[in-house]
Design a protein around this nucleic acid. Sequence first.
DNA 1: GCCATGCAGATTGTTGACAATCTACAAACG
DNA 2: CGTTTGTAGATTGTCAACAATCTGCATGGC
Lengths: 232, 232
Amino acid sequence: MATPSASSAIELLRSHSLTTLVRRELERRILVGELAPGDKLNEADLASELKVSRGPVREAFRALDQAGLVRTEKNRGVFVRQVSVEEADEIYEVRAGLDEMIGRLAAERATAEEVGELREMVKRMQQVARGKDVAAYYPLNVRFHDRLADVSGNRTLAATYRRLVNELHLHRRETLARGPDSFPISTREHAAIVEAISRGDAELAGQLLREHAMESRDRLHATIAKKGQVTK
Amino acid sequence: MATPSASSAIELLRSHSLTTLVRRELERRILVGELAPGDKLNEADLASELKVSRGPVREAFRALDQAGLVRTEKNRGVFVRQVSVEEADEIYEVRAGLDEMIGRLAAERATAEEVGELREMVKRMQQVARGKDVAAYYPLNVRFHDRLADVSGNRTLAATYRRLVNELHLHRRETLARGPDSFPISTREHAAIVEAISRGDAELAGQLLREHAMESRDRLHATIAKKGQVTK
DNA sequence: GCCATGCAGATTGTTGACAATCTACAAACG
DNA sequence: CGTTTGTAGATTGTCAACAATCTGCATGGC
């Protein structure tokens, strides 16, 4: 490893085609909100902006479509996917089940280092939470759950989970425009989850994570009810 | 509706680009076994065989890659995905959880017609089962579970389920080459599942479907053990 | 005999051009 | 005045050609 930066650059070029890079960039823009649900993605514009031809852009579109982040209408274009409340509700339902599996498996398989890492993440979240800074808390929360999915040791489970969470990000992006974000700071729950995992209590970890997910779902329903009063 | 065939043809042309058609054809070939796991897919050959240019073929590749049916190696080509026993084990684990959700929701939401349809499918499977014709039984079994996923009423759940089942088909294709298929004829279990759904017993339906999936997983483990003896 | 080096063919990655389709606006008709 | 038809511009779908990379084999050096 004489030139780590050079070798990593080589590795970057070796595995990443333009299609992959375009795909990542678009995924980033969508999840970060630069591209809002319903926005149209113009092939030519994106191609010239990213300094590539339309081919890689189109290939990236097909991948993003399959990933559920955009929807394609023939001869009309591709649009950032809009996730309705009904869909979000369905997704939450599945996510709750996956979260329970993640909790169970994580409790069974987590190593001491992994538990330590999770504890560290919870601690960081608690620090941020004191400032009531939702904007800073949100990504930490996402990464915590993401890491939890990895700790489950089941790659298929983690990949399936991430896919659904991405779609829920989409829904959040959609509703975010209508009003301020009321994201919950639930560090206590997180701490309890990590403790259950630490003790190897699969049943409890699964139950806690399921409930944690269900609360998100219930919050969605509460928001629907409130929006229903205000908007119409 | 004066010319239903014509209007359906129009609808076909309206929504299906060449990319979509190529994608479907390749998916069919992979799931039916015409393309075996590990096989390389040559862009130019496929393009000329399907009478299209390489563009749509490449776009179909990106979608199939994201769908988990092929894997892409930059500058080397795309290959039909190989699902190892470890991966299959992971997938089964997730599938068992999804199946439980499907059972629960189906029991809660299934209409009388849907239950009737499921009963009909079980009956057909029983008829085929008497002939011990595994080749004929297998697709019926797949369609039964597929329909069950729809009956759950949760499209996200059904889509997630199908994706995993496709990957398991891949694993089956891979192991099928090594020896005869020992697919189980479990019409009794299917009948019990439908009955639980019919009675609206969500708990039981979920439990039965989970066990049903777990048996597939256990069969995989048994096969591994046996293969381990024979092969090495 | 064995390994490194360097072509030659094949295959993938990317691009720009052409064809088909859609959208918006304006003119013509009832 | 409203509806319809037609046309121009923009956008997507498809294609064929060019560039970059890989694979296999032969040649040469040790």
